[in-house]
């Protein structure tokens, strides 16, 4: 059996961890660095990393507009941490000129929980993920400051949304790719399967 082909934006960040989690969740991961490679995938992961770095490289390597078009056209995307920031409509406490892909009707706050010494792990209930709580790893993580009516909040920490979904776009402030628990990735693979579009 062959699962859906899911791209991982491989400009910078924890690509290897997402690749492993996608494999465990039944998908075929492929690295994406060029616009043409977007035509070959059924969904796309925007990994953890530095959102300013990835945003600048998206512009340099002419991926920003193609990604915006794909997100608007319904290609399923999942962003963790920096990936969540890239999927936001706007960002606060970021760089004013920071390039964003957008697609999710939300404003996120960068480094919302503080600096690295404030990074933490915690158990979270996540809507759409059956079974025990998800062990969530937050690293200099953002949160959702403001979410539009069409955005479903899947999990919160101290009232702030940290996992959201709008249509076929999924985003988490934490890093499900770091724990070996691939249930959030399975949720995304299910979104990709049921969207049946993409190419």
């Amino acid at each position: 059996m062959s699962g859906p082909r899911i791209g991982i934006l491989a400009l910078q960040g924890d690509v290897r961890e997402h690749s492993r989690a996608l494999t465990l969740a039944g998908a075929q991961p492929v690295e994406v660095r060029r616009a043409a490679e977007l035509d070959e995938v059924d969904g796309l992961v925007l990994p953890g990393g530095e959102s300013t770095t990835i945003g600048r490289l998206l512009r340099v390597f002419a991926l920003l507009e193609p990604l915006r078009e794909r997100a608007a056209a319904g290609l399923p995307m999942f962003g963790s941490c920096a990936g969540m920031i890239l999927l936001a409509r706007d960002v606060v406490d970021g760089r004013p000129d920071q390039p964003l892909v957008g697609g999710l009707d939300m404003v996120v706050r960068r480094n919302a929980f503080g600096r690295q010494v404030d990074s933490f792990e915690v158990d979270l209930d996540v809507v759409g993920v059956p079974g025990p709580p998800v062990h969530a790893v937050f690293i200099r993580a953002p949160w959702v400051e403001k979410a539009g009516d069409g955005v479903e909040v899947l999990a919160r920490v101290a009232e702030a949304p940290v996992a959201v979904r709008q249509g076929s776009l999924l985003a988490t402030a934490f890093h499900p790719e770091l724990t070996g628990d691939f249930r959030v990735h399975r949720l995304f693979v299910d979104i990709v399967r049921s969207s049946g579009s993409g190419r």
Binding site: G49, E50, Q116, F120, I139
Partner: peptide, 16 residues
Amino acid sequence: GTARVKRGMAEMLKGG
């Protein structure tokens, strides 16, 4: 301050 958040922070710097 767990080993996972310390090591995980470095994972986010990869390729940079």
